[in-house]
Design a protein around this nucleic acid. Sequence first.
DNA 1: TTAGGGTTAG
Length: 513
Amino acid sequence: MRPRPSVVRFNQILGQVAKLKHYSAVISLYNQMGVSRIGHDVYNLTIVINCYCHLNQMGFSLSVLGKFFKVGLEPNVITFNTLISGYLLENRAAEAAGIFNKMIAGDNCQPNVVTYGTLVKGFCMRGNNRAAIQLLRKMEEGVCKPDLVVYNTIIDSLCKDTLVDDALNLFSEMMCKGIAPNVITYTSLIHGVCKLGEWKEATRLLNEIVSKNIFPNVFTFSVLVDTLCKEGMVVEAEGVVEMMIQRDIDPNAVTYTSLVDGYCLRGEIGKAQNVFELMLSKGSMVNVVSYNTLINGYCKLKKIDEAMMLFLDMSHKGLVANTFTYNTLLDGFGKAGRIQDAQKLFSEMQACGQLPNVRTYSILLDGLCKNQQLSRAMQLFGEIEAKKLDINIVIYNILIEGLCIAGKIESARDLFCGLSSKGLRPDVRTYDIMINGLCIAGLTSEAEKFLIQMEEKGCPPDGCTYNTIIRGFIHNKQTSMAMVLIQTMVEKGFSADASTTELIVNLLSKDCL
DNA sequence: TTAGGGTTAG
């Protein structure tokens, strides 16, 4: 008989597997080995709670918490922090706050700097930088002072929102308090300035980091590679990769995937494929995101069969396609007019356990509407409503556009008027679609009313709106009104796009003849 | 021995 592992040894294994982020493996170990046989303690129960949190299974986390009380154990501050983090990951801020309040009200488990750090991250994740900074100020007044992690969390969030000046102010403030920045602080700042296209400032920060003997790492360089690629500067990005290799910093899946995306964005699919193959040659470097990126590149070029080959290839490699993968391919089939293939893949996705989200449905609706299958689109819309999914304005925009293009302006108008009863507000795109539909139906004066209404409702028209309505007036041979609108558009700082320009040129040349 | 911070896809 094999000796029974002691609780210490068992916990060590559990800890190591958790560190590798193999959460399901930890849970199956916990269930298979029967902790009741080995012994529960605060450590192993907290690890299991954490794993359920990362798998977005808070229900199970709570049942493990119940186990504490059954066996007479007291959860500690780490257990509570883990639960707060789990709730925040599931976007359940009220429950997270509930635990925090219980900690404050209790005697033996007061919040520590990690508790506050977790809450700060929660605010940042919801885009609420203001609340995050308020909590930072509260910490400064209390016993539990903010540390580097708290500052880094907020600095990063500000940089992501391109509020780099605010981030730099916080950065100076932090240093005045004697908290030295690390490579994470600088990586966030570099990311922020790169997003603004301030390459000189990025170089200055890189020099500063080196002068402080802080070494830029794979994260720092990947940020540079990615932002250069997003700006279309793939050649420069390749140069950064070269620099990394010279400095003995190995580019990882993220670095190379950014390059793949950079080439895809420029339509250079061959070069994207080359980088992808380089990744494949490096063994286990390719992940689901890398496949999705290249699949997306092929779909954008309407090369859906090549995209499907990659999809099959990833399954053969044991990688599980996610909702993003299916959405990309569904969109590709829809844009290629292959609705039957899209329907087949949609069934396959559900059979594989990948849950369709609002985006999946919007892609399917768009495919149906753009392929003259309006009645099926309306039927699908009914199914989406029945599922009680969080229907957004994008879904309505697709349907309204489908109705307009099919000449059903009355139904489009009804749907538009019913938006507020659904708790939704039309956006610029909604107005543009309605204006275009009304112009197609020859109802230009009503289109003009929409143009005025959008301004009044706090949704000012943009360049696209003016182009749409100007084209509408020209098509309806109301040239004098078109000319007035062209002047207004120019005065507002917008310009005519290629297709509007062509129409204007035709109009003027006819006038001359 | 477990909890909070930085990089990739619509």
